[in-house]
Nucleic acid binder design. Structure first.
Lengths: 352, 352
DNA sequence: GCAGTTTCTGATAACGTTATCAGAAATCGT
DNA sequence: ACGATTTCTGATAACGTTATCAGAAACTGC
């Protein structure tokens, strides 16, 4: 017990800047200067210190640096949904990886926030220097998070949009553009009767952006081309709702030659329903999907032509934006709308 | 400029324990004691301090706590794949949310690690006290991460298994069990000719557990029931490979009445191929899927009967395990195999 | 009423780093 | 050759917290 390994429990004690200084025969601040690439260090000293660092296997103590520096070099990616299980259906992994990649590129860490976070706990994360900024996923029109963070003057970037955007930075999907693009393409193929299966009414009512703006976009597009349309607001996560929604649409307007949906699952339901009405896709009716989930598009037969966004890119850009804001507080608010990309597969055809 | 707000840039300076102490009229250590629920504090003092905390909006400075305490209260979830884009096809979001939920429950933070991490940078994360432990996703037989962490005596938990498991903790999918379960069910339905579309050969060769053990499990199960089988090792991410694989299987054994696949996409390809051979699923041939991705199962027609694991649960359990290990270094290694759950849908039927 | 215990509190010193200052050594200009 | 500048280095003090110690106050038991 009197042995040298009395500090056995201390096995994880890390090598400090002081150890390096001792080995290199310099002072502690000098090592620090070298670690931080400050000017005014003799080349010879620099080399000696670097060698000591290498032989000792020294790594700077992150917590200490952060305490001293006043920043945590950590960002949070926050999703509002309470139940983590539900999350899986809405948020895709590229949202996480995109943010993680951007963060690591800028030498930040990324915490993924899940679970029931109340306002107080979010404020606390910032106050307690756990995080320097937040990237908000799935921002809706009247988002309590936005109000909270704005009031408290906390740095954040939104993926999605809220109501009063003045002075706020966001990245969002350009739904109006998407609908116009969809119509441009459909019109080009000769379609005049275009149905729409969109997000649930409940989503629109609680102010979820995609639900609001895609319907607006649909109406704009109808206007632009002087067409009448018909739409249904249905759930996204079941083939059944697509099936029933399509039945409804066909009852209202049997002349439909094209249906736009906002989820691959409902599109699958659409195809089923159309088949039951004796209509093959794409020969007798075209089906187009706007949204995410390129993976699904190829599972359905026929494979689905889509207007898609890359969640990876969006999340990546939002995170870069956050780091830039943190690096330069004076940076004016950036408001970025991302247009979707048309990916032609099998589910659309010219009107005969 | 001589104004009080010379410390303007200091606007984010947080309220410290010292402020609380001053307001409450006590000493700094006393506040600390109260914050950490230590014994020996007068009830009256406790209340006074708590009130000061509330009125000031104080939150403990995480970095300082961690510096003092020597732990970071942060875990990392690490995935080995280099390109973040590829990640999306293999790792699902519940892996992240499950770990995040467990971490937050145990008052840890969770960093999601992505991008090209070399050995050195992983060691550094630990050495530099950024993280207290790592949860490794997708561990394969000869995983460099495992060797590295084991050699350096770093705390980690695996999702998946490597070669030499002595003294290591892991959570893995029980593939042998899965194959036996699959066969039990298939035999019950009267099937005797059971084909298998499994993971790519390349995966097996580089030692990816599912690829190795599901094939082993298949062979065991054949043995158990005294059957002959036929299998193909194909890619997972395309309907086409499922299509071609199934054609191959049917050529080798036209008597097949059931096919097991390990991905929903290849199952979809299977169904296509069977249809082309005039065989309807499930009337003329059953299709079963083992693996993740319950979402996909309902997109395909007919919907797919599956043996599925919950990535959320697995990740959750692995993370809890990690925290327990950190809380108690003496805890013996835990090695946990999770059996899959049979979810009956439409794609399987009794043999006529 | 006094030693012995328990309950409470505050000074002090760390944790590992970096900013600030000031002093020493080297280089420069005249 | 001498002051002025530039280059380099080290003491010192912070960042916000907690562990340790010791002392004060309040209780015990006789």
């Amino acid at each position: 017990m009197t042995k040298k390994n009395a500090n056995f429990r201390n096995e994880s004690r890390s090598i400090t800047i002081a150890d390096v200084a001792r080995v290199a025969g310099v002072s502690v601040p000098t090592v620090s200067r070298i670690l931080n690439d400050k000017e005014y260090v003799a080349e010879e000293t620099r080399q000696r210190v670097h060698e000591a660092i290498r032989t000792l296997g020294y790594a700077p103590h992150t917590q200490a640096r952060r305490l001293r520096g006043g920043v945590s070099m950590t960002l949070a990616l926050h999703h509002p949904i309470e139940s983590p299980h539900e999350l899986s259906s809405v948020i895709e992994i590229p949202y996480v990886t995109g943010a993680a990649a951007a963060a690591s590129e800028k030498e930040y860490f990324l915490n993924f926030l899940v679970s029931q976070l109340n306002p107080e706990s979010i404020l606390n994360m910032y106050r307690s220097n756990q995080i320097d900024g937040i990237i908000l996923l799935q921002v809706c029109m009247d988002d309590w998070r936005v109000n909270l963070l704005r009031e408290n003057n906390y740095p954040f970037v939104m993926i999605g949009r809220c109501a009063n955007l003045e002075g706020l930075s966001f990245i969002d999907l350009d739904f109006e553009n998407a609908m116009l693009q969809a119509f441009d393409y459909l019109i080009e193929l000769g379609h005049q009767n275009i149905g729409f299966l969109t997000y649930p009414q409940s989503w629109r009512k609680i102010g979820i952006g995609p639900a609001i703006r895609s319907l607006e976009g649909y109406k704009h597009a109808l206007n632009k081309y002087g067409l009448h349309g018909c739409y249904r607001e249905i759930g996204l996560n079941s083939v059944e709702e697509g099936f029933e929604g399509t039945n409804d649409l066909l009852q209202e307007n049997p002349e439909l030659t094209a249906i736009i949906t906002v989820s691959h699952l409902t599109a699958a339901g659409s195809i089923k329903a159309l088949a039951l009405h004796g209509r093959n896709v794409p020969q007798d009716c075209s089906v187009m999907v706007t949204g995410f989930g390129g993976n699904f598009a190829n599972v359905v037969t026929p494979s689905l032509t889509t207007l898609e966004w890359s969640p990876y890119e969006i999340s990546y850009q939002a995170t870069i934006l956050m780091t830039e804001k943190l690096a330069n507080k004076e940076l004016p608010a950036q408001q970025i709308l991302i247009p979707p990309k048309l990916v032609v597969r099998e589910s659309m055809k010219e009107v005969r």
